[in-house]
Design a protein around this nucleic acid. Structure first.
Lengths: 183, 183
DNA sequence: TAGATTGTTAATCGATTAACAATC
DNA sequence: TAGATTGTTAATCGATTAACAATC
């Protein structure tokens, strides 16, 4: 049984991923067809296909504004890279006060550098983790400089032009949706 | 015009809240009817009704596990209280290493205290912000002790019994949904 | 062939939005 | 009365899930 090819079913994959098997099959369908009916997916084929798809997409550059507790956590958060994003620069009002772990490769800069970096790097997306008070003016500057999409962790509703998309992350809301299940 | 009652329309409210006016009216409808057709909502009536509704609901107790950068940010995050939750205790593997801002009222404890606190306080909900490696075993302990709902910031899919609800917060996913709008 | 499992279509569900009668 | 705006129903949309023919 040396050449045995390991296979895995959509239901097995779905179980570990925490989704329904139907959903998983549908999602895989967007990438291509590499399952075998009655058998499942060959692990090596699937793994290669996924790597190829992800690898083909180059990382999208993102900047982070506000490096307090939350900002620092986001910098260290591995997930962005996995989903195809790279935080290429981070900005804070008081960069000298921020202590980053030594393993961080991102250069921390003052707010006055932000506009220039967005322009020269052609940055289109920004993550905001600044205090509520500062949020609107930071957003204005981002949009002015050319940012088209903002992931906003500040507890404020940002007013931006219609061409700009804002995604507000409301952590408390996530908790609320859970509370319905607690009795 | 001394006794003039200020009113506000659903569209004005919706604009600042960043939602559609229809949605706002519908949401208010769940609480009760206090608008006046053709006129709008009287600010003081509306404000009182909302306060009463929110005040009536007592705060739900939640614990936080893992007080690294992200955990510390969550502790300081004002939004939970606003939505009716209160972080009543925080636990970390190395509590002595964690430096919290002086304004924090939450007592930080070691992991060995966790089970007892959940039991004695009857805690039903937990927020997890621990490293991926530790996530599953922490989840097991939480569930063992009686927690029924987990808000999980750790980048892991937790395997728990069907009676327990897990809400995974995937920050990268939020960013991904934005990227469709960037061209 | 019989059992298993994919790929995909159709049904379901929930949430959002449009539309409009009620009415101030 | 005419204009404005609510409260609510119906339509729309998107995402999830069930179901099943295809087929290994």
């Amino acid at each position: 049984m040396d050449n045995a090819v390991e296979t895995v079913s959509s239901s097995a994959l779905a179980a570990v991923a925490g989704v329904k098997s139907t959903q998983l099959r549908k999602d895989l369908g967007f990438v291509g067809q590499f399952g075998t009916r009655g058998l499942g997916y060959k692990v090596d084929v699937l793994s290669e296909a996924i790597t190829a798809t992800l690898g083909g997409t180059s990382l999208q550059s993102v900047i982070l504004v506000g490096v307090g507790n939350l900002g620092a956590a986001l910098l260290r958060y591995g997930g962005f890279h996995r989903e195809g994003f790279e935080i290429v620069a981070a900005f804070d009002m008081y960069p000298q006060d921020v202590k980053l772990k030594a393993d961080s490769k991102v250069v921390l800069q003052g707010m006055d550098e932000m506009w220039g970096v967005i322009q020269s790097e052609g940055i289109k997306m920004a993550i905001m983790a600044v205090p509520a008070k500062a949020a609107q003016s930071v957003a204005n500057e981002l949009v002015d400089a050319g940012v088209q999409a903002i992931l906003n962790f500040s507890p404020t509703v940002l007013q931006v032009s219609d061409q700009v998309v804002v995604n507000n992350v409301d952590l408390a809301l996530e908790l609320e949706s859970l509370s319905y299940f607690v009795r």
